[in-house]
Design a protein around this nucleic acid. Sequence first.
DNA 1: TGGCTTGGTGCACTGACTGCAGTTAATACG
DNA 2: CGTATTAACTGCAGTCAGTGCACCAAGCCA
Lengths: 196, 196
Amino acid sequence: MNQRELQRRETRRVLAEHALRLFSMNGFDETTVEEIAAAAGVSQRTFFLHFPTKSAAAFPDHEERVRDFIDRLGDGRLIGNPLLHLCQVLSSGLDTGSPTRRTRYQLLAQVGALRDEDARTDRDYEEVVAAFLIQAWGASVDARVRAHAIANAALGVCRASLIGWGEEGIDAREVCFEILHRMIGSPFDAPLHSLQ
Amino acid sequence: MNQRELQRRETRRVLAEHALRLFSMNGFDETTVEEIAAAAGVSQRTFFLHFPTKSAAAFPDHEERVRDFIDRLGDGRLIGNPLLHLCQVLSSGLDTGSPTRRTRYQLLAQVGALRDEDARTDRDYEEVVAAFLIQAWGASVDARVRAHAIANAALGVCRASLIGWGEEGIDAREVCFEILHRMIGSPFDAPLHSLQ
DNA sequence: TGGCTTGGTGCACTGACTGCAGTTAATACG
DNA sequence: CGTATTAACTGCAGTCAGTGCACCAAGCCA
């Protein structure tokens, strides 16, 4: 590991830490980027070298998590039951361990701008899930629409579970898996166009 | 109808019209609020009397549509099969008639900022749907989480269908109803906690 | 007609974000 | 080693979205 790389990561970490602290202490709108940067001991300009927007600092590990998610999802062509696999990977990803993560989702439940940011980051997952299902099903128009619909739906369930967890402390993982399984597990075993 | 009210509506309509035109002609980021206001023959300050944000001008009938949606959804306590009813109301709401609406969803498929705005407006629907289901099911913690999860999922399906329609011209209504029906129609007939 | 209301305006301001031209320190390389 | 290069960080000036405030002018109502 480079010394420069170390320095860069450290700055980023400290920025994210102070951002989350200030957001939950004083509120999102009441916190300026200038303040976050000052608290972290760097200039405002540096903040924007590390995060594209103010709200992105509340989700500093996003890219990393998406990469990790892609790894855990694997190749859709090689999986026997893609939808069940998807349910498992999605709900196992809702690790409710870290207190930082809890703070983040409590914030999320309150602050509109952060829910927006969350929706934005969810779009990345949505694309990954859709790509996975298209791998599994082929790229016909029908499959593509179906893949995006299911991806949106599945992530919607996860988001609701996580926000519920942030608001009320309900364990997200189990209920999420259960709902996902009901929703996308069995009904899509039947071929499409078989409904009257 | 008041003359003032008429004037107000007309200004709003013209603003929205020029906003959509400029967005699709020159791009969202390339269009300034100043330009929209100038094109509509009013001041920039007036734009913000009519729309809270630049992107809101791309969805000028949002509040009205939400009100209409609430009406069509009705009272959850009085409906025999709330989920089926929800499927019907949601997919019938995807009227793909107006060319303005088509333009809007073509834009939506391209412009990140508008997808964000769309996600934001979807939150309003999400709350309406969740409230409807909570009316139908009661307000236990379990029902609330389930309601929000299903609301998120259902709207995710609609969004995907509409974006698919914007991108590829596929009729959104039918495929949306089919997927919704599979997803939330039958599986939730069984009681919760009946999966192994 | 005269007071009140309200849609629109002008202005000054905040704050997010960007482009550019530096400085300094780590690193790669001859 | 010493030197050229790279890259993290800085300062500054600028754009643009969005807000608060005092104000005008035209509609409304008594």
